[in-house]
Design a protein around this nucleic acid. Structure first.
Lengths: 335, 335
DNA sequence: AGACGACGAGAGAGCGCTCTCTTGACAGTG
DNA sequence: CACTGTCAAGAGAGCGCTCTCTCGTCGTCT
């Protein structure tokens, strides 16, 4: 192992014939440095290949220039097949890259993992924390906010904690979907709902409820958990309980995909006998049989907005408590 | 914002009536501390809610207790629909959690992004670097290795740089796939190859080549880039050039999925007329029409092994230059 | 022409921690 | 009983950086 002693500020200062403080000014872009000196320093930095020691900097500035993105580990499994998990990361990453900050990813699986996340984030080892795909009412975001640590969560938090969030317009998307089904003559519209301990699951179901109620149609509900397996089971249940259904709105594309197959196995043609609409617009949606009509949500943008909000918060600005991103009905062949 | 001054070692020491050094010993688990004193310190730590300042610790230990996972941003797009990207992250995350280290995720998109990764990793801001899904012959891993910074890459690096890597047995998997096709009587077996600037693409193609050559069968090749679009295009080309083909091995499930549809559109029945085998075993593979026979690769395990290797390297141990993980043929309905 | 203001650059004090070195206490040995 | 060996705990020196404060040098205003 090469004991390549990294050059320090001191070394650069010596080389450029100035003081440490001046090098620091140049490195951090202060304007109060005369041009020839700045140039000499810049040259010395380049020649020595100087890279600031972040730990030393953090120690005095109290900033870490990194933010944490916390996701329940289960999310990476449930969503493993769609673009939600990578999409959020991509969005977050893009914004952080622009801000030259680092992304510390924490997948909290076990309770021990959750405790680790708590220790790490409350320990102020990051300048801010992003939470994605919260299940139930996690107290951590609220705790952090109370400690004055910048936090932004994805999806309106349950149990209305006063934590800023960014969410997509679930209700708007669902309403458009149901309306589309009604417009095409469907009158027995069922829903395969998502888990009722996640805001996305809750909102998409309540959106369905008001939409069918407004149209004077009956509520036909089976609850799943966003996965394909749960989608198949729910579809089978619906078929048994409501054999005359002619439309299905599934709260996730994964469940919609499974419903498509279950319907086919049950001898129903899609969309002739039963129209199906999903939610998410995962890439696979365009490749199902038939291609899936679905509600698209801007996932990458969600990650970006969360990050922008967090950075503003960390910079001391005050931000809106809620940001809502639009959803859009993508018409394909299934409805 | 609460100016919640975090307690320092000093504060804990004062409270426990000992010196800073002793608190440090207790916190870091040194054995040379008498029981009553250790207890007093532990109590003081708990009462004050003391959490060590990592920046200060790093400054003196020269460790950061975090490692970087670098992925080309494109990977999150290409693989957005399968489990490769989340799978690796999950594996890495699991091992790091066990080792109580942090994961810094860097998605290198633009050249500027790549430069940022270079700066950050060569700047020794992490204890080690993991590279996933390398395209072409990136010089960075080699550079880092030369600087004495622990590095492990996924997939044998192109241009044989002396960097330790973990890879799956592409050739073994492909061979099993081709053998399966041959065993079921196929004689005109084509392949939709992956990108030839990635080791996975290269090896899967060369595996195909030797397998068909060994059986005295002709080579029917069309190159794609692992995505569905490229899969459709390649399948169409194959159909035009070799209308009599009766088997297809696609180097990714995404391409296999697209091939399935393209074949159907061309009026070919799968598997009656044409048998299709993919590679990856993404979740969607079980839900295609018909369900896809494919080669499973242990993606989460890949992430775990890479991480374990890296941690051993960072601990000063010497490790094997290459680790190979097994692949397995999963038989479903398409072949 | 003298004095004051402005601004650029250096000096130096830490940030919170670890770790080496030293001291002190006690037990064991001749 | 004196001496040495052993082990536990404290003292103190930094790790590399930022930032306040101070000083020196001009330019400018009266």
């Amino acid at each position: 192992m090469t004991t390549a002693q990294r050059p320090t500020l001191e070394a650069v200062a010596a080389r450029a014939g100035v003081s440490r403080a001046t090098v620091s000014r140049v490195v951090n872009g202060s304007t109060t440095v005369a041009e020839p000196i700045r140039e000499a320093v810049t040259r010395a930095v380049a020649e020595l290949g100087y890279v600031p020691n972040l730990a030393a900097r953090s120690l005095v500035t109290q900033r870490t220039d990194s933010i944490a993105l916390v996701m329940p580990e289960a999310a990476t499994r449930v969503f493993s097949d769609d673009q939600v998990f990578p999409g959020i990361i991509r969005g977050v990453s893009q914004e952080l890259e622009a801000a030259d900050k680092q992304l510390v990813l924490m997948l909290a699986g076990s309770p021990a993992g959750h405790h680790r996340v708590e220790r790490y984030t409350t320990g102020r080892h990051v300048d801010g924390v992003l939470f994605a795909s919260l299940h139930g009412a996690d107290p951590l975001p609220g705790t952090l906010a109370r400690l004055g640590i910048p936090v932004v969560v994805s999806g309106r938090p349950l149990g209305d904690v006063p934590v800023p969030y960014v969410d997509v317009d679930h209700v708007g998307g669902v309403t458009a979907a149901i309306r589309h089904l009604i417009d095409s003559g469907r009158r027995r519209i069922a829903t395969i709902a998502g888990p009722q301990d996640m805001i996305a699951g809750i909102e998409r179901l309540s959106g369905y409820r008001s939409a069918v109620a407004d149209a004077g149609l009956p509520e036909l509900v089976a609850v799943g958990d966003f996965t394909r397996e749960s989608g198949s089971a729910a579809m089978r249940r619906l078929l048994t309980e409501h054999p005359d259904l002619d439309g299905v709105f599934a709260a996730s594309d994964l469940m919609a995909h499974a419903a498509l197959r279950t319907l086919r196995e049950a001898g129903r043609r899609v969309p002739e006998d039963v129209a199906v609409i999903g939610f998410d617009d995962i890439e696979t949606a365009a490749y199902t049989e038939p291609p899936l009509t679905t509600v698209r949500q801007p996932i990458v943008e969600l990650g970006r907005r969360m990050t922008r909000q967090l950075l503003r918060l960390a910079a001391g600005e005050t931000i809106e408590q809620a940001v809502m991103l639009p959803t859009e009905l993508i018409r394909r062949a299934s409805a």
